[in-house]
């Protein structure tokens, strides 16, 4: 479904991606792990066209990403941002139904509100939350609203950027379970970036480890603990000693 081949991206002298190759099959849940600053978010933003790669190709369903009708391309994606990225000036339901209130997927306001409330219910939030502003919500609730917004238009592909960062372990578990359930029931292709190994085990079908701008290891989550890859072993066990420098 998504195939990245030799993707490179540098910011000045900082070469973040140095030839990243990755394949995410349709309907699978791929989790990308790696230390801070290794380019996980950059890779995700390259697929969406938020950042232009310097070299390499990114194909979605066999077609180059970012070519052709951009609105139609983006309409296939949903994304949960690390900080939620909810629009402060809009009430929760309008955040969730944002895509349904304008553009090619626009629906009547009442219908869009109903969909928003249904999606909020799906992520465990009561309808009363719909008319609150994002600033009135806790961090966990904001993540859930972000998740509801990501799935509101029933996208084929969903990206999750650090979905559990900043949440307590119980709320992180709730979000992980929600992501797994939603991806399974929607049959969507998912790509998650995280450092949280609990999330990896809860969400992933496949795991890829990004280090030094390339995919160091990739395979099914069941093989992760016996990979024999020293980088992956050091990362998943959180050891200071190993091939990955602790001070970067």
């Amino acid at each position: 479904m998504i195939r990245m081949t030799g993707v490179k991206k540098a910011f000045g002298d900082n070469r973040v991606l140095q030839g990243m190759d990755l394949h995410i099959p349709r309907g699978s849940s791929m989790v990308i792990i790696g230390g801070s600053g290794t380019g996980k978010s950059v890779a995700l933003k390259c697929i969406l066209g938020l950042i232009q790669p310097d070299a390499g190709t990114i194909m979605v369903d066999g077609k180059p990403a970012g070519k052709g009708d951009r609105d139609a391309f983006l309409a296939r994606f949903g994304m949960l941002f690390q900080g939620g990225a909810l629009f402060d000036s809009l009430p929760v339901w309008q955040n969730v139904a944002f895509r349904l209130l304008r553009g090619s997927l626009a629906r009547p306001q009442d219908e869009a509100r109903e969909v928003a409330i249904e999606k909020l219910r799906r992520v465990g939030l009561k309808p009363e939350v719909a008319d609150l502003l994002p600033a009135e919500l806790s961090g966990g609730m904001q993540k859930r609203v972000g998740l509801a917004r990501a799935i509101a238009a029933e996208p084929e592909i969903i990206f999750f950027d650090e979905p559990t960062t900043g949440l307590d372990p119980i709320m992180a578990g709730v979000i992980n379970d929600l992501i797994r359930e939603i991806v399974t029931e929607m049959g969507a292709t998912a790509m998650t970036i995280t450092h949280d190994m609990t999330s990896v085990r809860a969400i992933a079908d496949n795991v890829a480890m990004l280090h030094d701008g390339v995919i160091q290891w990739t395979g099914p989550v069941a093989d992760m603990d016996n990979s024999g890859d020293p980088y992956l072993d050091q990362f998943i066990h959180g050891r200071a000693e190993g091939p990955i420098e602790a001070v970067r």
Binding site: L48, L50, D71, L74, A75, G83, A85, D88, R99, G103
Partner: peptide
């Protein structure tokens, strides 16, 4: 600027806006 810093601008783009 706050929208940019908090990725709301990126969110707008991903929502086809």
């Amino acid at each position: 600027a706050t929208m940019k810093v908090t990725e709301q601008i990126d969110a707008l783009v991903t929502l086809s806006t």
